[in-house]
Design a protein around this nucleic acid. Structure first.
Lengths: 133, 133
DNA sequence: CGCTTATATAAGTCAACACTTACGGATAGC
DNA sequence: GCTATCCGTAAGTGTTGACTTATATAAGCG
């Protein structure tokens, strides 16, 4: 499942936005989301589950409460999908400089070196972000 | 409709990827997509319509063919959603340099007027690098 | 002028998924 | 212990939207 599939939902995007400044309890998130979107508490809880299971959020128990935080890893993957399109709106600048600024050089190199297929499920082979290298 | 709602579909994302190097005919796109995703020609045509109507693609007639191109505007909007999260994975670097690299200085300046809310809880002022990576 | 190619639209089907109500297991507080 | 709060899961419903087949329109081509 691609990161952008998860982010293709306004409620989930909003939850992540609410978490950008630090952890929040499920209840606090719920109250905001319920008021903004007019949905029930279980609906919010189900979105939280999706975010957990897809790796976008982590939970930490605090008494009866659950404190949610952003895990940036899949977010960065979603953002990386835009890499090939950035030349359309980013000023040209130095390509290396851009790579450095995005902090993805090591990643790119690693991916280039190890082009072996991994052990994941039988998903569509072209879906990755490295096909243009 | 948010740009990321449109991008929450692997077929549409793949079509845009195929357009990154320049215009392609609906037929050429269709053949690739059909072979990769196993869907019919009308299905591809319907995705193309969504991309057209949401502004991600523009069309130019060429005889009986339709040549599709990327319109980067909504793509840039989708990418901009990640702005607030980039501090999680971008190296500190020079903030100005980063802004320049992203080509969004004017935008940011406009937004800076309205931002200025206090940050919360446990957050000290380490200019946003990876706290858990 | 038929025939093929290129592409879009119409209409209907079907499954995914976002939602609902109902409920259950913890923890907090009196 | 009793009750309220916090939050998740279960199960069922309904709508969205991605797909199908069938068809239409327009252009190339012999």
């Amino acid at each position: 499942m691609h990161a952008l599939d998860i982010l293709g939902d306004p409620v989930r995007r909003r939850i992540l936005e609410l978490l950008v400044d630090g952890e929040e309890s499920a209840g606090d998130l719920g109250r905001v989301i319920q008021s903004e979107f007019g949905i029930s508490q279980p609906a919010v809880s189900q979105h939280l589950r999706v975010l957990r299971e897809s790796g976008f959020a982590t939970v930490r128990p605090d008494g009866a409460r659950r404190l949610y935080s952003v895990d940036p890893t899949p977010l960065a993957q979603g953002d990386a999908w835009f890499d090939v399109f950035r030349r359309f709106w980013e000023p040209k600048l130095d390509a290396l400089g851009t790579e450095l600024a995005r902090g993805r050089l090591a990643q790119k190199k690693a991916a280039a070196a190890a082009s072996t297929q991994d052990s994941s499920t039988h998903e569509n082979d072209v879906k990755g972000d490295d096909q243009w290298m």
